[in-house]
């Protein structure tokens, strides 16, 4: 049988780890949200060279 008393020190350490974990999770979520916002607003780009490519734009009617 293992005997593991819960010390005040463990509680404090747990609160610190939990706080840090939640902060990091929130940071990841924020970076993801920022990325989505910025990518959605970006110019059309080709996946391999990250340069502006008018050729990717849908052709307008009446134009070659």
């Amino acid at each position: 049988m293992t005997f593991r008393p819960e010390h005040e020190l463990h509680r404090r350490r747990f609160s610190r780890n939990l706080g840090l974990g939640l902060t990091l999770a929130a940071f990841v979520a924020l970076v993801f949200a920022l990325t989505v916002v910025k990518v959605k607003r970006g110019e059309p780009m080709q996946g391999y060279d990250h340069t502006y490519s008018p050729a990717l734009l849908p052709k307008e009617e009446g134009k070659p």
Partner: peptide, 13 residues
Amino acid sequence: ATPYEPGFGDYVL
């Protein structure tokens, strides 16, 4: 007796 273990709130302060 152990040295004080700071909680998350201490760092927030």
